[in-house]
Amino acid sequence: MADVLVVGGNGFIGSHLVDALSEGGHRVTAFDRFSTGVPTFRSSAVRMLPGDFLSRSDLEAAVRGHEVVFHFLATTSPATAEADPTLDIRTNVIQTVELLTACAEAGVRHVYFASTGGAIYGPQERSDFSETSPTLPISPYGIGKLTIEHYLRYFGAKHGLRSTSLRISNPYGTRQHPNRKQGLIPIALRQIARGESVARYGDGSMVRDYVYVDDLVRMLVPLVDADPRHEVYNLGSGRGSSVTEVLDAIGRVTGAPVRVHEIPTPATFVDRVVLDVTRFDEEFGISVPTTLEEGIAATWADMTGERA
Rank of each mutant, 00 (worst) to 15 (best):
V198F: 01
V198C: 00
A199W: 07
A199V: 11
R200S: 06
R200W: 04
D203F: 09
D203I: 14
G204Y: 07
S205Q: 14
M206I: 11
M206W: 11
V207N: 04
V207S: 03
R208L: 13
R208A: 14
R208V: 13
R208K: 15
Y210H: 08
V211I: 15
Y212G: 01
V213I: 12
V213F: 09
D214R: 12
D215R: 01
V217T: 02
R218M: 02
R218F: 02
M219H: 12
M219S: 10
L220V: 00
L220K: 00
P222E: 15
P222S: 14
L223G: 01
L223Q: 00
D225L: 05
D225R: 06
D225S: 06
D225W: 05
A226F: 03
A226S: 06
D227C: 00
D227Y: 00
D227N: 00
H230F: 11
H230G: 10
E231Y: 15
E231K: 10
V232A: 07
Y233Q: 05
Y233D: 06
N234Q: 15
S237I: 12
S237V: 09
G240I: 02
S241Q: 12
V243F: 06
T244K: 10
T244Y: 08
E245M: 10
L247C: 04
D248Q: 11
D248V: 09
D248P: 15
A249L: 12
I250S: 04
I250F: 06
G251N: 11
R252V: 03
R252D: 01
G255V: 03
G255E: 03
A256H: 15
A256I: 12
A256R: 15
P257L: 07
P257S: 07
V258R: 15
R259I: 07
R259C: 06
V260P: 10
V260Q: 10
